[in-house]
Design a protein around this nucleic acid. Structure first.
Lengths: 244, 244
DNA sequence: GCAAAAGTGTTAGAAGTACACCCATGA
DNA sequence: TCATGGGTGTACTTCTAACACTTTTGC
């Protein structure tokens, strides 16, 4: 570790992608954990914060080290600081080894971020021996620390935020997508079922969803039209603004 | 200071009240700051966290020390951890003196909470020499650290949360309130104007707003009816939104 | 031609918006 | 009796929800 870290504060990133059916989370192995249990030791990507970086910068750094992606919309959503977060002793041991710390860490407050990504984005070479994998939310193993809780609160947070600003969800889709893909994303994230016909009517009224002439190719049924997302000029797709 | 504190993590509380016209914030004096400048030294109520308490507990403790209130809905809304939060040297000096710390604090990440209160709630005797006062949001002085930013983000957070769950706003009102009071609260927090007639229709459909027989007394115009808030059984006053 | 998924209209009810006048009270 | 703020009806528009059949394509 080159830089001084703050041994009390970390960031953790819940990177969410969509595989066509479910939300997936990017989890990493605790490499260097000693591998007592080769089936486990998964966690969210995260890091202690360096003393010379802001929280948002730390989250971006973790994302970049892990995936090579930059300029991604990372949203801080909650701090987790329960006194029992390090109750599993192997988590503390891993932390101290990984960060080459010379004293015992008794407590870490972590600032959790979430980000929506296209699951097929090519991951660049991973630094730090990370071994990352997308895992469907329903199939998550037991993660280190309280990371399972963090994932569930992240999903809840995304659900709420996307209710106020549905344009967030387009980050989960490729540049060109079909109406069905968009619908399934919305159904999955918001946990509701949408009427197909009414959904077509609705996207027809969205100024930021542009129908293309291009269609699917090579499917053994009627080809679906592609759409494109164009972020509106004024970012206020959110209802109800006006300053007090 | 009896208990061990974590010198890197604090909580700060944005307590919001409503005076009939504007949102007010409870700010406190940095007592023991040396009083170089008797006009300033205001800050949000907050504290370093103790090593044996959770974040939520720390926020409740600060609120209780300050106001005597317990069981108040405190909502964590954001962590602030910029590297320049302590850029004003007098803020660091105050912190180190107040908490009797023997080393220099270079950086603190604070977890910010917000809470909506009736502004007329009687404050109990304040511990720790706090000197607290409600201040209209528009008249806030320069506060210590980045507390002015924190206040503004708190208000924005409350605005968003109350869009999804309007029942939050009843915490700002007395037990009995008039339709006009409720309307002005909603207009102020959400930053919009509401049509009086339509507003009456709307509250008539809200199951959690109960009209009383009792009316205002001693006003020199037609007396307004009082209403009461009763929290619904299932807390989902949240719209089943699909505002794509 | 058939399996498989895409795409399309209409209607009824609910909810929201706009608008102007009468009512009760104390001074 | 008047000044003050409280309270109401109605028409119109928009949104939402429910519903079943035809189209295109590869095999």
């Amino acid at each position: 570790m080159d830089l001084a870290v703050n041994p009390y504060v970390s960031v953790d990133c819940v990177l969410l992608g969509f595989d066509g059916e479910q939300l997936n989370v990017l989890i990493v192995r605790q490499s260097g954990a000693g591998g007592e249990d080769s089936t486990g030791n998964y966690k969210l990507p995260g890091s202690l914060i360096y003393m010379n970086e802001n929280l948002d910068e730390a989250a971006q750094r973790v994302l970049k080290q892990l995936t090579g992606l930059v300029q991604v919309n990372m949203m801080q959503f909650k701090a987790f600081g329960g006194i029992d977060r390090l109750q599993n002793p192997s988590d503390s041991v891993w932390l101290e080894r990984f960060h080459h710390l010379d004293h015992h860490i008794e407590r870490i407050v972590t600032i959790a971020y979430t980000s929506l990504l296209r699951i097929d984005r090519k991951m660049e070479k991973l630094e730090g021996g990370y071994e990352a994998q997308w895992t469907p939310i329903g199939d998550l193993p037991k993660l280190a620390f309280d990371h399972n809780d963090i994932v569930h609160e992240a999903v809840e947070s995304v659900r709420q935020k996307s209710t106020l600003d549905p344009t967030l969800l387009f980050d989960l889709l490729p540049r060109k997508f079909t109406a069905a893909q968009l619908r399934v994303v919305m159904e999955t994230v918001q946990g509701i079922a949408l009427d197909v016909k009414n959904f077509h009517k609705k996207i027809a009224t969205m100024p930021y969803v542009i129908p293309l002439e291009e269609k699917e190719d090579g499917v053994n049924h009627r080809a679906a039209r592609y759409y494109q997302f164009r972020r509106p000029r004024n970012k206020k797709c959110v209802k109800n603004n006006q300053n007090i």
